[in-house]
């Protein structure tokens, strides 16, 4: 009996909140690190198709994105409804791909350059014509690692 009462007596009633800021900061830093602030606004509608044999892209800095789709409502008056290519944050023609790749390449350390991947984010409803042109241009520019972006097919 005496033992029990002793234990209860020694326990302080309050939990210290002094470490609360540290915990919050830890969470904060976690989210700051994982956050990818999207730099390019999408001007084309891209809804990637479903697939099953997917590979995950690891290093974000080694990936450049090429978007292909129909211009969104806002841009249809100027650019029409035919599928277009978007590089970075603006519409581009297929001929501009080599320069775009080169601009991305110089930011990557030389040792990592062979692992640069082009992620083709293509809308499912687009016809293969423009995709083929882009692929041909990529091959001509020596960018052979390509990832056809797709969503996991729900079972």
């Amino acid at each position: 009996m005496a033992k029990f009462s002793k234990k209860r007596g020694s326990a302080s009633p309050e939990v210290s909140t002094a470490s609360l800021p540290d915990i919050i900061f830890m969470l904060l830093f976690f989210f700051m690190v994982v956050t990818v602030l999207r730099d390019s606004e999408l001007k084309v509608k891209v809804s990637t198709p479903y697939a099953t044999q997917l590979t995950k892209l690891e290093e974000k800095s080694l990936v450049n994105y090429l978007y292909i789709g129909r211009p969104t409502q806002k841009f249809q008056a100027v650019y029409g409804t035919k599928p277009r290519l978007q590089l970075g944050d603006k519409f581009a023609s297929v001929a501009e791909i080599p320069l775009f790749l080169e601009k991305h390449k110089i930011k990557v350390p030389e040792a990592k350059r062979p692992r640069i991947t082009s992620s083709l984010r293509v809308d499912g409803e687009v016809t293969m014509g423009i995709v083929q042109d882009v692929k041909t241009q990529l091959r001509k520019s020596g960018q052979l690692r390509v990832n056809y972006s797709a969503k996991k097919r729900p079972d």
């Binding site: 989210f31 956050t35 052979l144 690692r145």
Partner: peptide, 24 residues
């Protein structure tokens, strides 16, 4: 700050079919 980053975070999982194109 935490809430700001929570809201703006999009943990984009970029997945796809990896292909090696043949050289031109």
């Amino acid at each position: 700050l935490l809430i700001f980053f929570l809201v703006t975070t999009t943990i984009v999982e970029d997945k796809g079919i990896l292909v090696k194109l043949p050289p031109w």
